[in-house]
């Protein structure tokens, strides 16, 4: 076998391989000697070419994946934000009259929503100084023991802040179900409809503040 400068060329191959291994993909052997050994040199250069292509390809795919992941994360953030917005929106506390707050609850009462709802209501009670609040659950399809527990807690917290809390909109089916569950809601003032609750609340107001007749006349106007 005929190999020129064997020692030097093998050293060169080692150098190139070490350089490539260190991350520099530009390195090549590029020998211009033609002999029995140059085939191996050329083959190594080709291998490095292939490796370079492969790595570039992988980098590209990785970049694309990272791009996609970023997009998904952003979308997720938007969804979470929208859910939060929705939760806030679906538990709007409204001050209807001088002394009365109404909180209509729509949809499913999971723990997180109940928490937000309760905080909203308590905030509003403090902010407005209202002494009567109505929690209308006409739009709540299922009241299990956890939801009932949340309702009881909301009512006692409101009470601590000096506000009476009436729960309205308990359908006959839900009323029966609550009774069968064995939960005692007798400590809570409940009314069948929001309208019943309003009438009750206005009477309470009259009872609490009999001097404010003018207010009541104004209220009657509003009711018409």
């Amino acid at each position: 076998m005929n190999i020129k400068n064997a020692k030097k060329r093998i050293d060169n191959i080692e150098d190139v391989l070490a350089t490539v291994a260190a991350g520099d993909l530009e390195a090549r052997i590029q020998s211009d000697i033609e002999d029995d050994f140059s085939g191996i040199e050329a083959a190594i250069d080709l291998l490095i070419d292939d490796l370079t292509d492969e790595l570039k390809n992988r980098k590209k795919i990785q970049n694309e994946l990272e791009e996609k992941l970023k997009k998904i994360q952003e979308q997720q953030k938007t969804i979470v934000q929208q859910q939060e917005d929705l939760m806030e929106l679906s538990s709007p506390v409204t001050k209807v009259w001088d002394n009365i707050l109404i909180l209509p609850v729509i949809g499913t009462l999971d723990s997180q929503r109940t928490q937000i709802m309760m905080e909203n209501l308590l905030h509003k009670i403090v902010e407005t100084g209202c002494t009567i609040s109505i929690l209308d659950i006409t739009g709540v399809p299922t009241v299990d023991t956890q939801v009932a527990n949340h309702l009881l807690k909301t009512v006692s917290s409101a009470r601590l802040l000096g506000a009476e809390c009436i729960i309205s909109g308990i359908s006959p089916a839900i009323a029966q179900t609550i009774v069968h569950l064995g939960i005692d809601l007798s400590s809570i003032k409940t009314k069948a409809t929001l309208q019943d609750a309003m009438i009750y609340a206005m009477k309470q107001k009259e009872r609490v503040a009999p001097g404010h007749k003018s207010d009541l006349l104004y209220l009657d106007d509003e009711v018409e």
């Binding site: 399809p141 023991t145 029966q176 179900t177």
Partner: peptide, 27 residues
């Protein structure tokens, strides 16, 4: 729970029974 209510209705249970089985299942 929504699935239970859906099937309870499909199967022909009335509103009270739908509410009862859905609530029981929810527990």
């Amino acid at each position: 729970r929504q699935l239970v209510r859906y099937h309870a209705k499909e199967i022909g249970l009335g509103i009270v029974d739908q509410t009862r089985i859905t609530t029981a299942a929810s527990e």
